[in-house]
C-alpha cells in the first residue's frame, strides 16, 4: 500500500488581522501551520498503513520553510516528505498548482512506486478554493471522492474502497476502485498522539527537494505567467461602523430591541 498526501503550509488565517489604515493584512507574528484538513488526511493514510503495511509519502509545493510542515507529517507517522520548490512555480494559480503537483506526484511514483491512495485537504484555509485536489485527480484521470467523512472499507486484494462523503443533503456512500483520490473533511477521524520514536525519527529525517531541475515538467504551464487567473487587485473589506449600544435598564433595553424588530413581526396567525 502506498499513499501520497498533498499538504500545504498556510498562515493561520484565524490570526491574521487587518490594518485598516493601510488596507493590508497584518501577517507578522502569524504562525505558519499545516493546513488543518491535511492533518486528518495524514492521520487516515497512516491508519491504513498500520493496518495493511506499506508507506505514506507526503508532497508539498512551497518555499523551503514548508519543510517544517512536512516534518510535522512525518512526526504523525508518514515515511517520507518531498518538497517541490522552485522559483518557476511562484504565483501559480490553482490550474498551475495542480499541474506542478501532478508532475511532482509522477516523479514520486517513479521514485517510490505506484500510488493507491491520494489524499488532499478539502481546502486550504488561506485561499479556500477547494480546487487543487479535484485538479490533480482530473489530471491523473482517477476517481475523485471529495468531502470524505469516513473510509468504511479498504480492500487491497480486490482493489476497491467503500467511502462516505458529504453531500448537500446528507451523506452518500460510494464504492470506488483503487487508485482513488480523496479530499478530506476534519470529521474524518480523531487525531491520535504521536509516539515519541516518531517524533525523534521525524526530527532526524531528511526532506527530499524536487524542482524544475529534477522533475520533468513543461515550464510553460508553471507559475504566474502561465496561470489563467490573474489577481487584479486585493483589498480589505470595508470596515463597518459599530452601531448604537442600546442602554437603560434591562426592561428598557428589551423595549428598544422589540421596537427595532417589530416591523418584522409575523402577523399571520
Amino acid at each position: 500500500m502506498h499513499a501520497l498526501v498533498f499538504i500545504k503550509q498556510v498562515p493561520d488565517a484565524s490570526q491574521v488581522r487587518i490594518n485598516y489604515e493601510t488596507g493590508t493584512l497584518i501577517r507578522e507574528g502569524v504562525p505558519a501551520i499545516l493546513n488543518p484538513y491535511e492533518v486528518h488526511a495524514v492521520e487516515e493514510a497512516v491508519k491504513i498503513k498500520q493496518k495493511f503495511g506499506g508507506k505514506v509519502t507526503i508532497l508539498t509545493m512551497g518555499p523551503l520553510q514548508a519543510a517544517d510542515a512536512l516534518k510535522e507529517c512525518l512526526s504523525r507517522g508518514a515515511d517520507k516528505g518531498y518538497l517541490l520548490s522552485d522559483r518557476i512555480f511562484a504565483g501559480s494559480d490553482t490550474l498551475a498548482t495542480s499541474y506542478a503537483l501532478y508532475e511532482g506526484a509522477k516523479k514520486i511514483i517513479e521514485l517510490e512506486g505506484e500510488i493507491d491512495f491520494f489524499f488532499a485537504g478539502k481546502q486550504a484555509i488561506d485561499g479556500d478554493t477547494a480546487q487543487t485536489g479535484p485538479g490533480i485527480a482530473t489530471r491523473f484521470n482517477i476517481p475523485l471522492v471529495t468531502y470524505l467523512t469516513k473510509l468504511d472499507e479498504v480492500n487491497l486484494e480486490e482493489k476497491y474502497v467503500v467511502a462516505t462523503r458529504l453531500t448537500e443533503f446528507g451523506q452518500e456512500t460510494l464504492k470506488v476502485p483503487i487508485p482513488v483520490f480523496f479530499t478530506v473533511e476534519e470529521s474524518l477521524n480523531i487525531l491520535s498522539h504521536s509516539p515519541l520514536p516518531w517524533l525523534v525519527k521525524a526530527a532526524q529525517s531528511k526532506i527530499e527537494i524536487l524542482s524544475g531541475e529534477n522533475v520533468d515538467l513543461d515550464k510553460n504551464q508553471c507559475g504566474l505567467r502561465n496561470s489563467p487567473t490573474i489577481v487584479k487587485k486585493a483589498f480589505t473589506p470595508e470596515k463597518k461602523q459599530r452601531g448604537a449600544t442600546l442602554t437603560g435598564t434591562f426592561d428598557e433595553v428589551v423595549d428598544q430591541a422589540a421596537e427595532k424588530v417589530a416591523p418584522f413581526l409575523n402577523n399571520i396567525l
Binding site: 488581522r17 487587518i18 488561506d126 486585493a234 480589505t236 473589506p237
Partner: peptide, 11 residues
C-alpha cells in the same frame, strides 16, 4: 480569501 480578511478581484 484569508478567511474573509482580504478580498481579491480576479479575472
Amino acid at each position: 480569501t484569508f478567511g474573509g480578511s482580504l478580498m481579491a478581484t480576479i479575472f
